[in-house]
């Protein structure tokens, strides 16, 4: 049954799928960015697929490789309990179409990915920083950001913000 699903995915999106691999009992589909939204929409709404829960969405930074950023979606189907990982390598620009209209969970998760990696999600309803304060500069989970931050050795000063 689960391999049926895979067949159907390949049948519909064959040319857009860069790789399918199965390791340690987890299935991963690497999709090209042109069709990633279509594929996810298909996975979400198709009767047979019904991956109706977005368990996780996160970014990975492969500094030095080109393209650099990857976005990872982890899906789960409530009907048959199957988990599927979909990955997409961004094109040259750090931008990709949002999926927050497919799963509400993507709303915050995409904001977080934007906050941490600076990946922009096109058409996201409210793309702001979520964890860090608005005046923070840089995106900490990028590999070229030091873990202690840039101004670690300077004494910390608070800026008192005005009342809202």
């Amino acid at each position: 049954m689960i391999s049926d699903k895979l067949d159907k995915i390949i049948k519909n999106f064959g040319t857009y799928i860069a790789a399918i691999k199965e390791e340690k009992g987890e299935r991963t589909i690497l999709v090209k960015p042109e069709a990633h939204k279509e594929l996810l929409r298909f996975l979400r709404y198709d009767e047979e697929m019904s991956y109706d829960m977005l368990i996780d969405l996160c970014g990975v930074d492969y500094l030095g490789e080109n393209p650099r950023f990857e976005v990872v979606y982890l899906l789960r189907s409530m009907r048959d309990g199957d988990r599927l990982r979909v990955k997409v390598r961004l094109n040259g620009e750090d931008e990709i179409e949002t999926v927050s209209d497919l799963w509400r969970a993507a709303d915050w998760l995409e904001r977080e990915t934007y906050d941490m990696f600076g990946i922009r999600f096109r058409n996201h309803p409210d793309l702001r920083r979520i964890l860090l304060s608005d005046d923070f500069s840089g995106h900490p989970l990028r590999k070229d950001f030091p873990a202690e931050g840039f101004d670690f050795d300077k004494p910390f000063e608070v800026k008192l913000e005005e009342e809202i």
Binding site: I55, D56, V60, A105, W108
Partner: peptide
């Protein structure tokens, strides 16, 4: 559901140390 998504690049440190936080999504 608390999950860990670990990407290893073959070195002794995790390349990506992703935590899937249940409360984060529940709060959303």
């Amino acid at each position: 559901e608390l999950g860990f998504y670990i990407v290893s690049d073959g070195s002794e440190k995790p390349f990506r140390f992703r935590i899937r936080p249940p409360s984060f999504l529940n709060l959303s």
